[in-house]
Simulated assay, not measured.
Amino acid sequence: MKSQFNYFMPTRILFGPGKLKKLATTPFLPGKKALIVTSSGPSVKKYGYLDRVIEYLKQNNVSSVTFDKILPNPILDHVMEGAQAAKDNQCDFVVGLGGGSSIDSAKSIAVMAKNPGNYWDYVYGGTGKGKPVTGGALPIVAITTTAGTGTEADPWTVITNPQTNEKIGFGNDYTFPVLSIVDPELMVTVPPKFTAFQGMDAFFHSVEGYLATVSQPASDQYALEAVTLITKYLPVAVADGSNLEARTALAWANTEAGMVESLSSCISHHSLEHALSAYHPGLPHGAGLVLLSIAYFSFMAGKSPARFANLAKAMGKNVIDLPQEQQPFAFIAALKKLIAAIGLQDLKLSDYGVKKEEAPLLARNAMSAMGGLFAVDPYKLSPEEVTGIFEACLE
């Protein structure tokens, strides 16, 4: 056990089926006028989630305006536009409604509603200027309609700068939500393919947080339970999205994965994916992670095997009878089985327009834009090794 670590998890979480209606009565709303940040897609309107949030806020004596331009891979321009909308409408807090893209954008908008200049002035990594956030941020309420990013339980936000092809994570104490509502009933409408993509994002947050050199006892507990729950329940939810038991288990695993991100960190697996989807924004983040995962984790298991056997056990693999040198690779076998169980075994990066000759460019981007994650890897990757991992995924 590590003898030194920090624990900071300030978000109040209302969890469980039917919890959305608590928005109408909770005393913990941080203001009286909200900017609701949500997707440009049809789901939150089609299924009535946006209307319900507006009505529940109204019942709680909170008025609201809606900013509904957020893309699946959210971009810098919309952060700046949303921040201006918050200022123009004198909003005193921000609600992120939807998946990770909407909630991440809400966090970044909350920062820029209180600070001058351009959002990229504050981003650290790549071409970001890394200025301190001296103005704080508007309070953030997160209402997640997916089980993928865990962003309702962490401070992180990922935004793409299309001008520089950089997709960079950012966050600080101000960008923790003050209140998060996790209602699995809002997740039953997610289609099977996106249920799979989102569930694997949460899975890899947990795996990476367990492997990171900054892991700690609490993050380990959350990570291993999330891995177990996702392994068991993600195939169930993909097969039957209306199964509320499975959706609830995945919602909790996702929130746990967010806590892992708050207490530990992703490793460079996420850096590699951010490079892919920065250049190919049509690639869903979870799909990119899956497509990188076998090559990436096989390499890591060979170089730094110490914790992989525990991950395999969390996935239900019996490693006791295996020779010690084979135990880490039981995780790879279990991962392949899970990917097949959720119908993603035939995914290819080439389906999204990624070419093998891009590997050196993608490696440079990953190590520049999200270079900080390489610092907490269990094994220090070289540029040539990163290029090799990309190439292995494109053969």
Rank of each mutant, 00 (worst) to 15 (best):
M1K: 02
K2V: 13
K2G: 01
F8Q: 02
T11D: 02
T11F: 00
R12K: 15
L23G: 05
T25Y: 03
T25Q: 07
P27G: 08
P30G: 05
K33R: 15
K33G: 07
V37C: 08
T38A: 05
T38H: 04
S43P: 00
K46D: 13
Y49E: 08
L50V: 10
V53Y: 00
S63P: 00
V65E: 10
F67E: 07
N73F: 05
N73S: 09
N73W: 04
H78V: 11
V79H: 00
V79I: 12
M80Y: 05
M80Q: 15
E81P: 01
A86K: 01
D88T: 12
G96F: 01
S101A: 13
S102F: 03
S102I: 05
S102T: 02
K107D: 04
V111T: 07
V111H: 00
A113P: 03
K114Q: 14
N118T: 13
Y119G: 01
Y122L: 10
Y124P: 00
Y124K: 14
K129A: 11
K131F: 13
P132V: 11
T145D: 06
G148T: 07
G150L: 01
V158A: 11
I168W: 02
F170Y: 14
F170L: 08
G171I: 05
N172C: 10
F176Y: 15
L179K: 06
S180Q: 05
E185M: 14
E185L: 15
V188R: 12
T189Q: 11
F197N: 05
F197A: 09
A202H: 04
E208M: 07
E208A: 05
G209D: 02
Q216V: 03
P217G: 06
P217H: 00
V227G: 02
V227K: 00
T228D: 13
L229M: 14
K232S: 13
T248W: 06
L250E: 11
A251E: 09
E256T: 00
G258C: 04
M259G: 12
E261K: 09
H269Y: 11
H270P: 12
S271C: 10
H274C: 09
H274S: 12
A275W: 02
L276N: 11
H280E: 12
G282E: 14
G286R: 01
A287L: 07
L291G: 12
S293Y: 08
F299W: 15
A301I: 09
S304R: 07
A306L: 13
K313R: 15
I320K: 15
L322F: 07
Q324A: 15
Q327I: 01
Q327W: 02
A330F: 08
A330L: 08
A333D: 15
A333F: 10
A334D: 07
A334C: 05
L335K: 00
K336A: 11
K337R: 12
K337S: 14
I342N: 05
L347Y: 12
K348V: 04
K348S: 13
K348E: 13
L349C: 08
Y352Q: 09
G353W: 02
E357R: 06
L361G: 10
N365C: 14
A366V: 07
A366P: 06
S368C: 06
A369D: 11
D377H: 03
P378Y: 00
P378G: 02
K380N: 12
E384N: 10
T387G: 08
